[in-house]
Simulated scan of single mutants.
Amino acid sequence: MLADQLGQSVGDIYLGAIGRSLLSVGIFIIYIVGLSTLRPQAMPPLPPEARGEIGRKLIAQVLCK
């Protein structure tokens, strides 16, 4: 309905929304990383059974996937 009112195609409307959506997601990720770095006590902890060793293997697995 919006595309019809604006005289645009629906594809153009969706294409225009992708950049703003990705920007919103990026800002949210930066916020979460910053908050967890500056105030780790404000983040919910992982249960002990979900925690693992932080090492080269884990870092390589996270960066390569």
Score class of each variant (00 low, 15 high):
residue 3 A to K: 09
residue 64 C to Q: 15
residue 5 Q to E: 15
residue 51 R to V: 14
residue 1 M to P: 06
residue 40 P to Y: 00
residue 63 L to Q: 04
residue 64 C to Y: 06
residue 7 G to L: 02
residue 35 L to C: 12
residue 54 I to S: 07
residue 65 K to A: 08
residue 26 G to Q: 09
residue 44 P to D: 12
residue 15 L to H: 10
residue 55 G to N: 15
residue 65 K to L: 07
residue 57 K to M: 07
residue 5 Q to D: 15
residue 48 P to V: 10
residue 38 L to P: 00
residue 35 L to D: 09
residue 55 G to R: 05
residue 37 T to G: 01
residue 34 G to E: 05
residue 26 G to H: 04
residue 19 G to V: 10
residue 32 I to K: 05
residue 40 P to Q: 01
residue 48 P to A: 09
residue 28 F to Q: 07
residue 27 I to H: 03
residue 27 I to P: 01
residue 45 P to N: 01
residue 31 Y to W: 13
residue 34 G to T: 04
residue 4 D to G: 12
residue 44 P to M: 09
residue 7 G to I: 00
residue 47 P to C: 09
residue 22 L to M: 15
residue 36 S to M: 03
residue 46 L to F: 08
residue 18 I to E: 11
residue 19 G to I: 09
residue 49 E to M: 15
residue 58 L to C: 08
residue 10 V to G: 11
residue 21 S to I: 14
residue 3 A to D: 08
residue 64 C to S: 14
residue 40 P to I: 03
residue 30 I to T: 12
residue 27 I to W: 01
residue 65 K to H: 04
residue 22 L to E: 13
residue 60 A to E: 09
residue 26 G to W: 07
residue 6 L to R: 00
residue 11 G to T: 15
residue 39 R to I: 04
residue 27 I to D: 07
residue 46 L to M: 11
residue 26 G to D: 09
residue 18 I to S: 06
residue 26 G to C: 08
residue 31 Y to T: 13
residue 23 L to G: 10
residue 7 G to D: 01
residue 14 Y to W: 08
residue 10 V to E: 15
residue 63 L to D: 05
residue 12 D to K: 10
residue 50 A to V: 14
residue 63 L to Y: 03
residue 6 L to V: 06
residue 18 I to D: 05
residue 48 P to H: 01
residue 56 R to K: 10
residue 49 E to Y: 14
residue 1 M to C: 13
residue 60 A to C: 13
residue 63 L to A: 07
residue 62 V to I: 11
residue 19 G to L: 10
residue 26 G to I: 05
residue 56 R to I: 05
residue 13 I to W: 07
residue 59 I to A: 12
residue 8 Q to V: 14
residue 6 L to P: 00
residue 22 L to V: 12
residue 21 S to H: 12
residue 11 G to A: 12
residue 6 L to D: 08
residue 63 L to W: 04
residue 18 I to W: 10
residue 16 G to P: 01
residue 53 E to N: 11
residue 65 K to F: 10
residue 34 G to Q: 01
residue 51 R to S: 13
residue 53 E to G: 07
residue 38 L to Y: 08
residue 25 V to D: 03
residue 54 I to H: 05
residue 64 C to N: 15
residue 42 A to I: 05
residue 3 A to N: 05
residue 33 V to Y: 04
residue 6 L to C: 05
residue 35 L to H: 05
residue 7 G to E: 02
residue 61 Q to W: 08
residue 52 G to A: 13
residue 40 P to A: 04
residue 17 A to G: 09
residue 30 I to A: 06
residue 32 I to W: 04
residue 3 A to I: 03
residue 50 A to W: 15
residue 2 L to T: 05
residue 60 A to D: 09
residue 28 F to T: 09
residue 5 Q to R: 15
residue 30 I to L: 12
residue 62 V to E: 00
residue 31 Y to E: 11
residue 42 A to P: 00
residue 11 G to R: 14
residue 34 G to N: 04
residue 9 S to I: 13
